[in-house]
Design a protein around this nucleic acid. Structure first.
Lengths: 182, 182
DNA sequence: TGAACCATGTAAGCCGTTACATGATTCG
DNA sequence: CGAATCATGTAACGGCTTACATGGTTCA
């Protein structure tokens, strides 16, 4: 089952909650899944068409505020496909970490550049960490009763732990690189 | 500078150390970069040809043990290109974590399946952690004097911290999922 | 002698991105 | 009135994977 289109299942998953337009899907991904998932709008539309052709989603053409708007909803087949996918173990993604590659080849680079790369990375991950901690706090405050709560908590925790490890590692790397430079 | 071929620079980087064949490159990636990088052999060959056409590598056709063998080495231009790439900040990869997506949609999945997914993941990351700790120990033992030592140490540490965080998170997730199930 | 490894490649094709194209509405 | 947002798409194409193809060598 390699080489499958993960966008299809991400879309199916979001439609599982309720009917949405392509534009909506993009916004949900950005607002709620952004720390572990990404979709580009131009890819969502053709996938939605394909899903429709396959009978996994229904399409309702409509208008909202004078603008055209196509709302998609899961069909029975779509729900089955989603559930089958959920039951399958996710296949591990082959890693490709550009920062680590550059660091691995660090001897042939300018130490100052490497330090800059790591600092940028650390700042990004630190910002992410703070954002996630805010999300976690809000989740604890007003969503503990939601049926999705345990699942959301798990994904937020993954982000927090990953970001924290990244920040700590960056500090260590910066220390080592500082010694190299001097 | 988006949409660039990272395989090109990975190859350039490995050739920086010394001349190698495509097959060699694949083996080096597997043996030394596997916890943060991946290349497939079928992709290496055409990229090598392209690099050759561009004048970034030289190609020496030869034979080793009766088998044909093409050895590539960096040209001056290739070295310059590599160094320019190393100086550029790595662009952050848009995240796509399938396991987290499935967990996020966990309410619509079978809890037992999710537990199995996380366990598999944890086992994989735990094995990785142990392997990396072994590598770290060996590095400390017999490579502290190598010029590459600080850089290798940094990348190994990244792997260890990431794997450790992943294992810890998995345990937490398993606990939460256990409560959900019962 | 057959499996594992060494060694190089081509072809097909999917996934996803970037760039391009269009047009309405809202709001400062 | 212009920028931001809502809203939907197509075209081109690059990156990488999978499958396929070939053939020599080593070693149990």
């Amino acid at each position: 089952m390699a080489r499958e289109n993960r966008t299809e299942y991400a879309i199916l998953g979001l439609l599982r909650v309720g009917p949405r337009s392509g534009y909506d899907i993009k916004k949900v991904v950005e607002e709620h899944l952004s720390h572990f998932w990404h979709e580009s709008l131009s890819h969502i539309y053709p996938v939605l068409h394909r899903l429709h052709d396959r009978g996994w989603v229904d399409r309702e053409e409509g208008v909202r505020g004078g603008r055209q708007r196509h709302e998609y909803s899961l069909t029975r087949d779509g729900r089955d496909a989603l559930e089958a996918w959920l039951a399958e173990p996710p296949e591990p993604q082959p890693p490709r970490n550009e920062l680590l590659l550059k660091l691995f080849l660090g001897r042939h680079a300018d130490p100052g550049d490497l330090i800059r790369h790591v600092r940028e990375y650390r700042d990004r991950r630190r910002a992410e960490l703070e954002e996630l901690e805010g999300i976690a706090a809000r989740l604890e405050e007003d969503a503990t009763a939601a049926p999705d709560y345990p699942y959301w908590r798990i994904t937020v925790s993954a982000g927090i732990r990953s970001a924290r490890a990244a920040v700590d590692w960056s500090d260590e790397a910066l220390e080592i690189l500082g010694e190299v430079e001097s």
